[in-house]
């Protein structure tokens, strides 16, 4: 099975933002510049996540994805605030190829089943945000803000039974930190599932991605900070981001060598015999 390299773009108020442990969000720039660049660099897929949509009960990615789809011809997964059939239709009309549901599905399991029945398994992804609290992996909603009593291992099986096409799993402990993926978590969960699993949270360099794809059965590596940091400077220097970006991030990423170039990553993985899309 060909493994996928996926960029994740978190959006708040029309800007690409990034934080750590899903908190402390800072503006890095315009999402359409980053996504166009990632497409030109041969990214396999892009996730657009509205990180405040569930909290504010809204969904405003349509304008962005509609713009992005003029330049980006790889699949777009859209998530954040998806809680009705109408929300899904609206996303698909505006450039999404698949949608991802988290809070809306935890709060209303019937909605997941209904969505699968109408749009087919393969259109419906489930996003799970999990926090390891003393060895127990708990499901969180509202972009990591709200703790639930749901056990992550039970939830993945449950949503698989509902017929969803794929799961995107974020490790909140590792997210934004660059300390590598939580390999044990992803190994355990990928071995339990017969549907694809995408792993998110922790990638700092190509070797982190290699370990994830080599040591576990996940289908894709989701990367946010490390890509953004790598391309931020170029986009910043081109004055595309102008006053909107936060340069503090640059110092942080340079100091920690926290950066991945998509083309270099793909070369690195191909050299190490990981099966990925080559052109």
């Amino acid at each position: 099975m060909i493994k996928r390299i996926i960029a994740r773009i978190d959006i708040k108020n029309n800007f690409l933002v990034k934080g750590m442990h899903l908190e402390g969000l800072r503006i890095l720039g315009y999402p359409e510049f980053f996504s166009k660049k990632y497409f030109e660099e041969d990214i396999d897929e892009i996730i657009f996540q509205d990180v405040v949509a569930s909290l504010y009960k809204r969904n405003q990615l349509s304008e962005i994805t509609s713009k992005v789809s003029k330049d980006v011809f790889v699949p777009l997964i859209v998530g954040g605030g998806i809680r009705s059939i109408k929300d899904i239709e609206n996303s698909l009309i505006n450039g999404a190829d698949r949608v991802s549901i988290n809070t809306g599905g935890v709060n209303n399991k019937k909605f997941i089943k209904e969505a699968v029945n109408i749009f087919g398994s393969s259109t419906i992804n489930i996003t799970i945000e999990t926090l390891n609290i003393n060895g127990n992996y708990k499901v969180f909603t509202d972009s990591g803000r709200t703790e639930t009593n749901i056990d992550t291992f039970e939830w993945v099986k449950e949503v698989e039974d509902y017929g969803v096409g794929e799961i995107i799993l974020t490790s909140i402990n590792n997210e934004g930190t660059g300390k590598g993926y939580d390999l044990k978590l992803f190994e355990k969960i990928s071995n339990k599932l017969s549907i694809p699993l995408l792993a998110h949270g922790g990638a700092r360099n190509p070797d982190d991605v290699y370990k994830l794809l080599n040591d576990t059965n996940v289908d894709g590596a989701v990367i946010a900070s490390a890509f953004h940091f790598n391309y931020f400077k170029e986009l910043y220097e081109k004055k595309k981001i102008e006053q909107t970006g936060s340069t503090n991030f640059l110092n942080f990423s340079e100091k920690k060598n926290f950066s991945i170039n998509i083309k270099d990553l793909k070369k690195y993985l191909i050299n190490k015999k990981i099966d990925i899309r080559s052109l």
Binding site: M1, I2, R4, D44, R98, S121, S122, G165, E166, S194, I195, P196, D219, G220, R277
Partner: peptide, 10 residues
């Protein structure tokens, strides 16, 4: 088959 739902490049 590898995956009963195939999502990705082939």
């Amino acid at each position: 088959v590898n995956k009963k739902t195939f999502i990705g490049w082939n």
